[in-house]
Structure formats: C-alpha cells, structure tokens
Simulated assay, not measured.
Amino acid sequence: MIEVLRIGQRLVRDDRVTTHVALVSRAFGASRIYMNEVNPEIKETIYKVNKTWGGKFKIEFIEDWRKLLKSKKKESVKIVHLTMYGEGINHIQKKLADEKEILIVVGAEKVPREVYDYADYNVAVGNQPHSEISALAIVLDRIQQGRQFDVKYDNARLEIIPSEKGKNVRDKSD
C-alpha cells in the first residue's frame, strides 16, 4: 500500500501542479492522496480519469496534515518525505522497496522542519532544483520497480493497446 500526502499549495499557481501530483500518484501505483481542500475540481478531475481509465484511486481532503502523520506513525506506516536534502534515491531505493506500507510526503511551499523529523526516510532525487512531480514519479517507480505499469483495470472504459506507431485505443463500452 502506497499513499501520498500533499502538504500546502500556493494559490492559483499550484492547482495544476497539485492535479499533476494526484495524476502521477494514480498512474504510478499509489492508492490514495491526502490534501487540503484547495480546489474541489481536482477531485472531480481524478474521478473522471478513474471512470474512463479504470482504477479505484481516492482523494481524501484533510484539515490537519500533522494529525495524519501522527496517525500513520502509530499504524507503523513508513513516512517518506521527498526533499532535495535527503538521502539519495540510488542509495535507499532497496530499503523503500522492502517496506509494506508507505506514505510519501510531497510539499508545495517550504516544508516545516517537523516533517523531516516525522519522516522515516528523507529522500532526494538528485541534488539540483527540480519538480516535485518528477521526484514523485521517480520514487514511486523505484519503490515498485516498474510493476505498476503491468496493472490492468477491469473497470476501465478505455484501454490503450501498445503500438509501435500511432495511437490505438479500444473503447470497452462498445
């Protein structure tokens, strides 16, 4: 079980980024994302994607991320905080892949110091400024070692048929 926590959002600018954090979480195998209710349209967008492409990915709006982190710690869920200042993914990916339950914390603005303390792993994807979206995708892929891309959803309306050239999409509702 892998879940994602999105902490914070810079108004207006981050609607699209937060939507992409949710889309990557879904596409790369997480089961749920927690976030502040900043824009209810994000939830609608993801549920439309679920309806079209399948899956049961959930968005849960929360009031207090600290309360969520405390609760997850009590449940022995491993907290993975994405930060440029953490241990390099190349050195820690095996440990992460061995964990059974993970909550990945993805910040927007400056993340409070206490997140570093809550985390079981502070993980860096490189040591240069980069997108939290790309870092999340890389970490999710390294944890699951590509297995998330073999998943087929029975409840998908549309299905992409791999093709060397062109687009091949099957509408399963026909």
Rank of each mutant, 00 (worst) to 15 (best):
L11M: 07
G88E: 15
L69S: 09
V111G: 01
H20D: 11
V111P: 05
T19G: 10
F28T: 04
V115R: 00
L82R: 02
A119H: 01
E37L: 07
L11T: 11
M35Q: 14
F61W: 04
K58N: 09
T52C: 05
Q93P: 00
K78R: 10
T45M: 12
Q9E: 11
V125F: 03
L69C: 12
K78Q: 01
V115F: 10
V80P: 04
S71W: 13
S71F: 13
V38F: 11
K67S: 15
G107P: 02
E101Y: 09
S76D: 14
T83H: 01
D98Q: 13
V49Q: 13
R32F: 09
M84S: 04
F28Y: 15
E87Q: 11
K70H: 14
S25R: 02
I89P: 06
Y121F: 14
F57I: 03
T19W: 05
A124G: 02
K94E: 15
S25K: 03
Y121L: 02
I79T: 03
N36V: 11
V21W: 05
D120Y: 06
I46H: 02
K70A: 14
A30T: 03
V111C: 09
K73W: 04
P40H: 08
D120N: 14
I92K: 02
V24F: 05
D117N: 13
N39A: 08
L23C: 06
N50V: 08
R6Q: 13
K94T: 10
A119R: 02
D15W: 12
A22F: 13
T52K: 14
I89L: 13
R26Y: 06
V12I: 12
K94N: 12
L96G: 05
S31E: 15
F57K: 07
T52H: 05
R113A: 09
E114S: 08
F57N: 10
Y47W: 01
A22Y: 08
E114M: 09
D64H: 12
I33A: 07
T45K: 10
T18G: 12
K70I: 14
D14Y: 07
D64R: 12
V17R: 10
N122D: 02
M35L: 15
Y118S: 01
V111R: 03
R13N: 09
K56E: 14
M84D: 00
R13L: 05
V21Y: 03
K100H: 09
I92S: 04
K94F: 04
E75M: 10
A124Q: 01
F57W: 09
N39D: 15
H20G: 01
L23T: 14
R32G: 11
Q9W: 06
I62D: 09
A97P: 00
